[in-house]
């Protein structure tokens, strides 16, 4: 066994939709406890890459491994893989007909086989962890965007995943609600959770991320510690993009 045993290995992954190359020979690894942020312009393949990691999208070529799961192997049990990979969506996608508590207990009961009582207890704990202990019986329609996204995070956490994927978790939220979600994410990062995060929140990246990737036209244009990538981007496209993001978010 080699010394280097990453949790997630992405190797030469390519994907095209029709004539359009969405991912082009992407390779990177993540260790346990790593928090990697992925940035890049719209259409650069960030979301597709995330979705390849939990097989919501199939790769055309290349290989992905997560712990013992050979993700890209067609024969694997995708449900077993997805038990170990949590996902938080841009559109949140809470189960609209279920209360906050039941959004979290559904997976516990149906996938992890918890009893009703155990599921309730575990779900309450997760919701308290994201600061929603007082909203257990609220329906998604009764919650603010930030609260909904925190339920979304609790729902993913409850499965005790090895890796959490975040697909622009704050970009559908009103600006004043972004902070409550990034605060929860920063807490998770500090607690040692392995996270792959597509976001343009440079504040979060600077504070919580161990690593930043810049994706451009389906390829990794640049990779490095967030501070370095933001201060001294080597790639021209990176610099240009980060400059525009700063103008929007108002961060220097």
């Amino acid at each position: 066994m080699s010394d280097y045993d990453p949790l997630l290995t992405v190797e030469s992954v390519s994907k095209r939709y029709g004539d359009e190359r969405v991912l082009n020979d992407v390779s990177f690894t993540m260790d346990r406890g790593d928090v990697t942020v992925m940035m890049g312009p719209s259409g650069s393949g960030k979301s597709t890459l995330l979705r390849c990691v939990n097989r919501l999208t199939e790769v055309d070529s290349g290989e992905i491994r997560l712990g013992d799961h050979r993700v890209t192997d067609p024969g694997i049990d995708v449900d077993a893989l997805r038990r170990d990979v949590g996902m938080v969506f841009q559109d949140i996608n809470l189960f609209t007909h279920l209360t906050a508590l039941k959004n979290v207990t559904l997976g516990l009961r149906e996938v992890r086989g918890f009893s009703t009582d155990d599921a309730r207890e575990a779900a309450t704990e997760q919701l308290e962890r994201v600061g929603l202990g007082d909203q257990l019986d609220s329906y998604p329609g009764e919650l603010s965007g930030g609260q909904k996204q925190r339920v979304g995070i609790a729902r993913a956490l409850a499965m005790e995943p090895e890796l959490l994927l975040f697909d622009e978790p704050t970009s559908a939220l009103d600006p004043e609600l972004v902070g409550e979600v990034t605060a929860v994410m920063a807490d998770l990062a500090a607690g040692g959770m392995t996270m792959l995060v597509v976001t343009h929140e440079k504040g979060f990246a600077r504070e919580a991320a161990t690593d930043a990737l810049f994706l451009d036209a389906g390829s990794i244009a640049e990779r490095g510690p967030p501070a370095q990538l933001f201060e001294n981007p080597e790639n021209e496209r990176t610099a240009e993009f980060l400059d525009r993001v700063s103008t929007v978010s108002g961060e220097p």
Partner: peptide, 18 residues
């Protein structure tokens, strides 16, 4: 029903049937 509801269900490990 929003298609992404089923995607979210699949993402926490529920089968299509579940």
């Amino acid at each position: 029903v929003d298609r992404e509801q089923l995607t979210a269900a699949r993402a926490i490990g529920l089968s299509q049937r579940q």
